[in-house]
Simulated scan of single mutants.
Amino acid sequence: MTLSLFILGSLADENSHPYKLKKQLLDTIPIDKISEGKFYYNFETLQKKGFIEPAETIQIENRPNKTLYKITKDGKEYLEREIYNNFKKFSKIEDLYISIYLLKYIDPHKAAIFLEDTIIQERKRWVEYREAYNNEELLRQYQLLEEKQKKAIEFISDHAFSQSEQNIRWMEKLLTFLKSTDK
């Protein structure tokens, strides 16, 4: 997941503190949970790279001080660049969730161009898998397997191919959405 993008996008909207951002993430994006360590590691990494910086410290009586952070100019540039990169290349559909959520920071039509290329590549990849799946050598090896192994391979293949078809349909819907969205 592109956790650092969420942090940057949230700080582009308003200055905030890490705990509030983590809660906002869990309330906004459909993810199970995220470890404290992973979240704060991403936060600290962004600060070390100069993408975020302390904006102010709030003192509340009988409570620890809260440091509010803001995004830097370099952070805004990085945010935009990485959102586009996410549309260019992602390994799982879920990797796009945060980039879709942060569309207001980019030109959706430019993201559509990148996504269109990704869809073409994904279709091509699955055509190649289907062709390989029907390869004579594989079919010969398949015939040598026990019946349970054959059923297991069929079960796994059925899921993989149907999931790829579903992912491509979803990306095509997303593409339509991006093309119809105004900047």
Rank of each mutant, 00 (worst) to 15 (best):
D13V: 09
P18S: 11
Q24D: 15
D27N: 14
P30D: 15
I31W: 07
K33W: 04
I34S: 01
S35M: 02
E36W: 04
K38V: 13
F39L: 13
L46Q: 09
L46P: 02
A55W: 05
E61T: 10
P64M: 09
T67W: 06
T67L: 08
G75V: 07
K76M: 10
L79N: 02
E80V: 14
I83N: 04
I83G: 00
Y84L: 15
K92C: 06
I93V: 11
E94F: 07
L102T: 03
P108V: 06
A111Q: 02
A111V: 02
A111M: 07
A112R: 09
A112Q: 04
I113H: 01
F114G: 00
D117S: 12
R125V: 12
R125C: 01
L138Q: 06
L138A: 02
Y142L: 12
Q143K: 14
L145S: 04
L145D: 06
E146C: 03
E147V: 06
K148N: 11
Q149T: 12
E154P: 00
F155D: 10
I156L: 14
F161R: 01
Q163A: 12
E165G: 05
E165V: 04
E165D: 15
E165N: 11
N167D: 14
I168H: 05
L174W: 01
L174Y: 01
F177K: 13
L178C: 02
L178D: 03
K179H: 07
